[in-house]
């Protein structure tokens, strides 16, 4: 009983302990402004990581999320910068992300390219288009408030970014845990052949999951551009390793060994707490990367230990 509880909540408790450590170590850490800052930064990472989680639920990996988000941000930024109606620009960013995700899905399920390779290919293409559109120069400007409010505004006194994160997180959790479609996504990832024999359209499920991952990248892009009033190639790349770390760390809690939305969200928050806390304690910037890499290694090891099974990578479809 205790062992099972520790397996499910041990990492989360470690996250709480980390939170307490920084709260004791820095007088600024627990201030409402700082907590809001951490939550807002969690929004970008969390939404991107939710997309990665959905792909992983079907045992596929999406390495294109950051480059796709950068391209979607560039497209959005270019349109806003050029004076296009901001809502059309937002729609375009979302469509670009979704289409890139759909391209990943087609490459994996129709062309039978392993997702590890297919998404790397799409990432490279997205990166190329980003530079083609910008010629390497960022779109920066005084953009309309109707656009920047998407990320910078508040609703009922709560920053919009937190609402976005809560909304996407809740929708993804509802989808995976409480809908038939979600059950089919999970079954596809857990036992592809058994699911197919039970009548589940497993290829469609993988296409859907990868498309949703692209859509999440698109939304992250729109919010990033809105928040920064700028759009540049590779602007989401800093979030890439963090998103993977959030998903892997999330797999070591709540449902050990499985990609799960609450775990991803909690882990994303914990990673941002870590980054924020280290800065407040005066740690050099490179410590964040060192700690991040360590977290990726430890979380995969933890998820393997928690389930008594090899970690998720064993389930990924490297062969077609």
């Amino acid at each position: 009983m205790i062992r099972r509880t520790l397996a499910r909540y041990g990492t989360a408790l470690a996250g709480v302990a980390l939170f307490a450590f920084f709260a004791l170590g820095s007088p600024v850490f627990l201030t409402p402004d700082n907590i809001a800052l951490i939550l807002k930064e969690t929004a970008f990472l969390g939404i991107l990581a939710i997309g990665f989680t959905l792909a992983l639920v079907t045992a596929e990996i999406d390495l294109s999320i950051a480059e796709v988000a950068s391209l979607a941000a560039v497209v959005t930024g270019a349109l806003v910068h050029g004076g296009t109606n901001p809502w059309i620009a937002v729609g375009a960013g979302l469509v670009v992300g979704t289409l890139c995700g759909a391209a990943n899905g087609v490459a994996v399920t129709v062309l039978n390219v392993p997702s590890l390779i297919a998404t790397l290919g799409v990432a490279a293409i997205a990166k190329g288009f980003s530079f083609m559109l910008t010629q390497g120069v960022a779109f920066v400007g005084r953009w309309p408030a109707s656009f920047t409010n998407l990320a910078r505004g508040t609703l009922l006194g709560v920053p919009n970014l937190i609402w976005w994160l809560a909304g996407v997180g809740f929708a993804a959790w509802l989808l995976v845990k409480w809908t038939r479609l979600g059950a089919h996504l999970v079954a596809t990832g857990e036992a592809d052949e058994a699911a197919r024999l039970a009548g589940i359209r497993t290829r469609s499920m993988k296409r859907l999951a990868l498309t949703l991952a692209g859509a999440c990248a698109g939304l992250t892009a729109v919010l990033l551009a809105s928040s920064l009033s700028s759009a540049a190639p590779a602007m989401a790349n800093d979030h890439f390793l963090y998103a993977i770390a959030a998903v892997l760390l999330g797999m070591s809690m709540f449902e050990p060994g499985r990609p799960n939305i609450p775990g991803t969200l909690f882990a994303a928050f914990t990673l941002k707490v870590l980054g924020n806390g280290l800065v407040l304690l005066g740690a050099e910037y490179y410590w964040q990367d060192i700690v991040l890499g360590t977290i990726i290694l430890v979380s995969v090891a933890l998820s393997a230990t928690g389930t008594g099974k090899a970690p998720f990578v064993k389930k990924l479809n490297f062969r077609r």
């Binding site: 999970v186 079954a187 857990e190 036992a191 052949e193 039970a198 009548g199 589940i200 060994g257 499985r258």
Partner: peptide, 16 residues
């Protein structure tokens, strides 16, 4: 291939 090992009993019974 009859069952999905990590899914629960009811999830397997109602798979699909």
């Amino acid at each position: 291939l009859a069952v999905a090992p990590r899914l629960s009993i009811w999830q397997n019974v109602f798979l699909g």
